[in-house]
Design a protein around this nucleic acid. Structure first.
Lengths: 209, 209
DNA sequence: TTGCACAACTGCATACTTGCAGTGATGCAC
DNA sequence: GTGCATCACTGCAAGTATGCAGTTGTGCAA
């Protein structure tokens, strides 16, 4: 995580506690299995109380995988060109990028081992996908509202509604990839591995419209 | 629920226990609020143990609303015409019908009161939407596999993959409607109320492809 | 009718999760 | 530095959820 300097003490301690909990959770789960790694033991190993554990993670699985709340950088939003012809692709990739910010921690090998042993750990990815969707949705509504081609809305719906449905459509190839048998939850999704699913979506869009 | 006759005793008792738990849950939640209606109290009022409660419902909210596992009637599947030009609409409506089979119990007024007081109850609809999607997905894959236009697959994907993504696309207008501010979780979605969302989807499909 | 297989159900033990009231450290203005 | 608002953290208590081993009742076939 290559922490830079100059963080306020409070922020730094918070980050340290986060890391301590994640490390303890992943380590214990690897040694004794997810079931045996109780919240109590994790908290004890990290030197905090069980109650504090839930101030950092919504569920034990999140701590083991090192999942954070996703964030959307303003600079990424600025790169979106609403008038370009590959709008679905752009939004899909944005969605993917935002979703991937939810993955904290950096020990990929360990994560792979954990998910291999307990596949159910991988399922929480979808939850964080939903959070990313919400984030992108709100942001995109703002962008569309300032574009003449979208601002007026279509078919009796405003730009907010257009944005909402657009994000849902752009989310399809990602959900598709996420639920594929060959999906690797450790590597996540990249712009390249998303390509085939995006191609299938475009093909179906033509076939159905 | 107009139970017909001639059910085996075992089936009948199971249905009775289901109804007793749902009635107790809805009634207690209405009287004292969702928070105060504990699983323990619900089970006691229904005359079964708390453990048994969880053999019937995955969560307290499901019991209060009377949600069941959705089912897909074979006859509905037979009506699907893969070659028709309104395939998205057909699948959307099928999806909607299957999802609506998850709503058991029949006291609409009570359900309305409950959701009005505790809006978070409505959110579990989405979970059952996912289950319905899975169901329709598997079924549709079988249908597409027998159609020459789809059997070969497209863009390097087989009919299963086409079906999966097709269902995701058809699910968009429903998810859209489900997350709309004006959505009424009591009335659910009908073929007519789905129309505008479906129109917006078609519009976007044309605009994006 | 008897006996068996199976599903429903139960108690018990344990773990997960949340709310609340209280304590102490931090950051900031003065 | 002093005082204050805020936040991180804690203990405690209660509610939610699950697994397991054991019991009871049902359906069915001999």
């Amino acid at each position: 995580m290559t922490d830079a300097v100059a963080l306020p003490l409070r922020e730094r301690k918070k980050a340290e506690t986060w890391t301590a909990l994640h490390e303890a959770a992943a380590s214990l789960a690897l040694q004794h299995g997810v079931e045996q790694a109780t919240v109590e033991a994790i908290a004890a190993n990290a030197g905090v109380s069980p109650r504090t554990f839930f101030n950092y993670f919504q569920a034990k699985e999140d701590a083991i995988l090192g999942l954070r709340e996703p964030v959307l950088e303003a600079s990424l939003l600025a790169e979106i060109s609403v008038t370009a012809d590959d709008l679905v692709g752009q939004v899909s990739r944005l969605l993917m990028t935002v979703a991937s910010t939810a993955l904290g921690g950096d020990d990929r090998a360990r994560r792979r081992q954990l998910i291999a042993r307990d596949p159910h750990l991988g399922r929480r990815h979808m939850d964080y996908m939903v959070k990313a969707e919400t984030l992108v949705c709100q942001a995109l509504a703002g962008v569309l509202g300032q574009e003449s081609a979208w601002a007026d809305g279509v078919e009796g719906f405003g730009p907010e509604e257009s944005a909402r449905m657009l994000v849902m459509i752009a989310g399809v190839p990602i959900r598709f990839k996420l639920t594929s048998a060959d999906f690797d939850p450790v590597e996540g999704i990249s712009a390249e591995t998303l390509q085939p699913s995006l191609a299938l979506l475009r093909h179906l869009l033509r076939k159905l419209s």
